[in-house]
């Protein structure tokens, strides 16, 4: 019974945040953290529920970011429309790339997605007339202002963009929750636990896997679009394999196959470098150790572990079967 209360507290805190912490820099970090939460929540669908590691989430974020940015810059599409279309463009790319890739299992799939991310990166870097190459694309507009009566809400203001991304995150969580609590979600868990068995039971596993892959990718694309219009500048660098690993880390760290875990994980990966104020190189080494240690000693992740420690009857969705992850 503690869950609704906790949810309300978190929501209230999120809404109040920009008024409590007014320093521009922290609002900036909060926006970035929420963008990464969206990516992590998406990654969780394929990784946490279906049990397939996709190392292409960073690349898909890039597809979303560039398609939304270029649609609004070059094609003159309104920004709101561009952001809404970006997840679907990303989904299409994931569908095309995922169809052959999901015919193979396990490590092969992971390697293929890694290569996919590299290809996306190579295209972003080399398709210079369209993407601007490594120098990137500048002058990406913020969403058009909304007028409510006499009140005009401009999204060039950081606080307003914060609420936009917060709303996007809430929408993402609604979608992910709906997916994992549906029949599809149960089939995905069956695939994770024993794909051969699920196949033998007459489930066309590849359809479900493809669906999970596409959902994950399109959410990453959505996050990418939000990122692009926030930063007003994008280059290929944030969409490299390193950032796909970041998303995987967020899911593992927080607790894969749980709804809240990836969010906590994503927030940690953004907050840690700021809190620790250490050179990035140490941070990445710490991330590496965190991955190894968590997989060996805490395979369920932080959130379920803390929930257990707290001794609550805080029944996370399918925490009970996490040991077979």
């Amino acid at each position: 019974m503690i869950r609704p209360v906790l949810l309300a507290v978190v929501a209230a805190a999120a809404l109040a945040f920009p008024h409590v912490v007014t320093a521009n820099y922290f609002i900036h970090l909060a926006v970035l953290a929420m963008v990464w939460m969206i990516v992590a929540a998406g990654t969780n669908v394929i990784q946490g529920y279906a049990g397939y590691v996709s190392i292409a989430q960073g690349g898909f974020m890039g597809i979303g970011a560039y398609s939304s940015a270029l649609l609004s810059l070059d094609a003159g599409v309104p920004v709101w429309l561009a952001i809404s279309v970006a997840p679907f463009i990303t989904a299409l790319a994931a569908l095309i790339a995922g169809y052959p890739s999901l015919r193979v299992r396990g490590h092969y799939f992971a390697i293929l997605t890694l290569a996919m991310n590299m290809v996306i990166y190579i295209v972003l870097v080399n398709w210079i007339p369209v993407t601007g190459g490594e120098a990137g694309t500048t002058g990406i507009p913020a969403p058009e202002p909304i007028s409510i009566g006499t009140l005009e809400i401009s999204f060039e203001r950081r606080v307003n963009y914060y609420y936009l991304v917060l709303a996007a995150l809430a929408l993402t969580m609604l979608i992910v929750t709906a997916v994992v609590r549906s029949r599809v979600g149960r089939v995905l868990e069956a695939i994770r636990q024993n794909e051969t068995f699920a196949e033998a039971a007459g489930v066309a596993c590849w359809k479900y896997k493809l669906f999970a892959f596409v959902i994950s990718a399109s959410l990453a694309g959505f996050a990418g679009a939000l990122y692009a219009h926030y930063m007003s500048f994008i280059s290929p660098a944030p969409f490299s394999v390193d950032h796909s690993l970041n998303a995987i880390l967020a899911v593992i760290l927080g607790g894969s196959g749980t709804l809240t875990g990836p969010l906590v994980g994503a927030a940690l990966t953004v907050a840690l470098p700021e809190v620790l104020r250490i050179a990035e190189i140490f941070r990445l080494i710490i991330y590496g150790f965190a991955l190894v240690v968590v997989v060996i000693f805490l395979p369920r992740g932080l959130v379920p572990w803390i929930a257990d420690l707290a001794g609550r009857d805080w029944k996370l969705p399918r925490a009970q079967s996490a040991e077979s992850r």
Partner: peptide
């Protein structure tokens, strides 16, 4: 790196 440089500018100016 362009992205890193914008982050750095943000840090220098805002923080």
């Amino acid at each position: 790196d362009p992205t890193e440089a914008t982050n750095v500018a943000r840090k220098l100016i805002d923080r």
